[in-house]
Write a protein that binds this DNA or RNA. Sequence first.
DNA 1: GGCATAGATGTTATAGTATATCAATTCAAT
DNA 2: ATTGAATTGATATACTATAACATCTATGCC
Lengths: 174, 174
Amino acid sequence: MNAQRTSDADETPDPCCAPERAPEGMAHAERICRERDAQFTPVRRRVLELMLESDRPIGAYALLDRLRADGLKAQPPTVYRALEFLIEQGLAHKIQMLNAYAACRRPGSRHAPHFMICTECHRVHEAVYPGIVDALDQAAKDVGFVTRKTALELAGICTSCSAKDTERGAESDK
Amino acid sequence: MNAQRTSDADETPDPCCAPERAPEGMAHAERICRERDAQFTPVRRRVLELMLESDRPIGAYALLDRLRADGLKAQPPTVYRALEFLIEQGLAHKIQMLNAYAACRRPGSRHAPHFMICTECHRVHEAVYPGIVDALDQAAKDVGFVTRKTALELAGICTSCSAKDTERGAESDK
DNA sequence: GGCATAGATGTTATAGTATATCAATTCAAT
DNA sequence: ATTGAATTGATATACTATAACATCTATGCC
């Protein structure tokens, strides 16, 4: 008996970390930027693409390396500027606990995404759970706080990793 | 009609950032460490004290400077080790969005504190709002995620700062 | 066309945050 | 005394991020 259900993609196993969705992600970004008259320049485009293709968050300097592998003579500010832009547009997020960046896997759903970070496989599940958003709104309201940005992160062990762990545990227990 | 109420210190204006509570904080830490056979060494003690005396989070290198002002020949690892210890013991928190550290203002209440960070006065309000904890538990449970650590942070404008802002706004509007 | 403007990027340098590694010390328990 | 565990000292370095200023590019206006 769950009081709360996650909003939409609840039945599908979890498209959260699905690199093959990169094309859709790019198409969405194109549209967003066109709507807003925001310039979706080659660097920005490429940085987003790299993040979409990855199944886990990437550090700024790792992105930098890949840009350079493309032949661009990029410097740190290049990457950080692109990231800043993408984050402003809601197309990417910074994972504070990792100092790393990930493409938004919930395009469209604005506000307060939260991240479950597996410390074992380093994958990150992005969710937008209404219960949390509501509770945070209430908490902020109670003290008259006006929220501008959020960082909601859980670090721990994801399902598939804890499955693997118990397997290994069972073996070594014999 | 609030479905949720914050737990305890709801009526008091907010003891969150009250440096004068440092003695109690220290006493609590002493007790905790004694109970757990954890060594509350001079460095650890001093670092906690510095955080308790501050009404806002402090960076590791600022702590380092103050240790040195005390005459200690400390190095970065000294501070980071002390912080690691204090965080493990639940006596301090890292504010991820600021890369800064704060003494726990909710000693006793374990689990999932969340922080409201004022980007104007840089003060931080630590709260433990049951609704949020419950919602996070539920969200994690839904995907079989086992939570070990959390970072729940809201950045925005606190009550007193938004009051000041509207004053100023009213003046300059004339 | 010439020019101003705004936005984006290039470039260099540096600031800020955190950890690895190994040596020395302390202190309690055997 | 000796061992071992925990802590701290000390040196070096890695990692993350931004400041500051120059250049480029596209657009709009005269």
